[in-house]
Simulated assay, not measured.
Amino acid sequence: MKLYLNNREQENCARKERNCPKPPVPPHLRKNLLDIELDTLDMELLQKIFGDEDTTAAAVHIIKEAPPEIQIIILQLMVILGKEA
Score class of each variant (00 low, 15 high):
R15H: 12
C20T: 14
A58P: 00
P24S: 12
M78W: 02
C13S: 15
Q10T: 09
E44P: 03
P24K: 08
P68R: 03
A14Q: 13
A58I: 10
L77N: 15
R30N: 01
E69Q: 09
R8M: 08
Q10D: 09
K22G: 03
D39W: 04
T55E: 14
L45V: 00
L38Q: 02
Q71N: 06
L5S: 01
R15C: 12
N19D: 14
P24M: 10
K16L: 15
D35A: 09
N32A: 12
K31A: 03
I70N: 07
V60Y: 03
Q47S: 11
E9N: 08
E65G: 02
P21S: 12
L34H: 05
E11S: 09
P21K: 10
E9C: 02
H28P: 06
R8F: 14
L5I: 14
C13Y: 10
P24I: 06
L34P: 01
D39R: 05
K48I: 03
A57T: 11
K64P: 01
R15M: 14
T56Q: 09
L33P: 02
V60A: 02
R18Q: 14
Y4N: 06
L77F: 03
Q47F: 13
P27I: 08
V25M: 10
C20A: 14
M78H: 04
K64F: 01
H28S: 12
A57V: 00
Y4K: 11
L5T: 07
F50D: 07
E11N: 05
G82R: 04
I49H: 05
L77R: 12
P21G: 06
K16N: 11
G51F: 01
L5Y: 06
P23Y: 12
V25Q: 06
K2R: 13
